[in-house]
Amino acid sequence: MNLSNMKQKNDQISNLFSRLDHAEMPLKKDLWSEIEKDLPATHHYHVAYYKWISVAAASIIIIGVSALLYLNKPSNIVSVNRVAQNVSAPSKACTHLSYTSPSLNATSSPKHHDLMACESANNKSFKHINKVIKSTEDKDSIVHVTITFNQYEYGHIISRRGNDHNIMNQNASYGNNDSAAQNSAQNDKEETALNNNSSSDDNWALTASAGTNRDENIIYGVGIEKKIANKLSLVSGATYATSKNGDRQLIGIPLKLKYDLCNINKIQLYAEGGARVEQCVHNGDNTNVSLLASLGAQYNFNRDLALYVEPELKYNIDNRSTTDKLHSFSGGLSCGVRFIY
């Protein structure tokens, strides 16, 4: 047999077996779950890029909405109205009046009747806070402008802003130049002390945050904080997160303790520690329990509003995931806004 015939016959085999190029064989059922368990963590550099953008965008939205809500909250509107009402009321002793927003720079004679009028306009949902904003000394008399702020009453929240006792003390000083000056200075001191000690009197805070970590694409959270000791707060709330792969959605409940470390001007540093239980609500039914530890830095715009960032370390102690293999440790970052009451 010559070489070409032999080659042709050998090709019979190659041709016959080329059918196997698309051959299929039945699989055992649990092979995918075994593969899934052993899949290594994927590095998502380009995903991470978009993830950080989405976190930044979410943060901007949260801050923007918060600022809008804060600037338009009813107490401020009422306050301005009251100021306008007080300063425009007719008075025999009125010598000079000017108003520059947002601070008030005015001189006026005491107008006890205005204050009383304000009080009579109140109903149960409002409470008075009396503040001496500015006092200036004229040649003949010391005059005060008394501004009544109305604030919605939330339990004890109002107490740090002043009370009826303060109002009466201040009202009692009107008409007496010397005592009025002393009282004004005392009020200034009290006001300063009030500002300095505001954090110790703030019992409640609400938070809204957006963040990310190694296992989760983005985490949105709302929280509530209750001060339980001088520097210690209890923190809880709810979180919504999407998994790294984007196919799972998780609802979580954190429970943490927050400890205030220090205050430097408007910046406050604190540490948090606790745990979070997460339940998969889409594409799975696994529950994950994790321990959390974080350090936070907070910038206080004023006594009511602060922005914060929290680098966080998460340890998954009970990972029953069937669709994702979570890391034991994962780092993350969240930022948000804190409303203090």
């Binding site: 995918w32 899934e36 899949l39 995903v47 790294k244 792969n245 984007g246």
Partner: peptide
């Protein structure tokens, strides 16, 4: 991108082969 659903789809399409 590490999407497990896509991985599984790929597995379902080609695993027998």
């Amino acid at each position: 991108a590490g999407n497990n659903m896509a991985r599984k789809s790929l597995y379902l399409v080609y695993s027998k082969r």
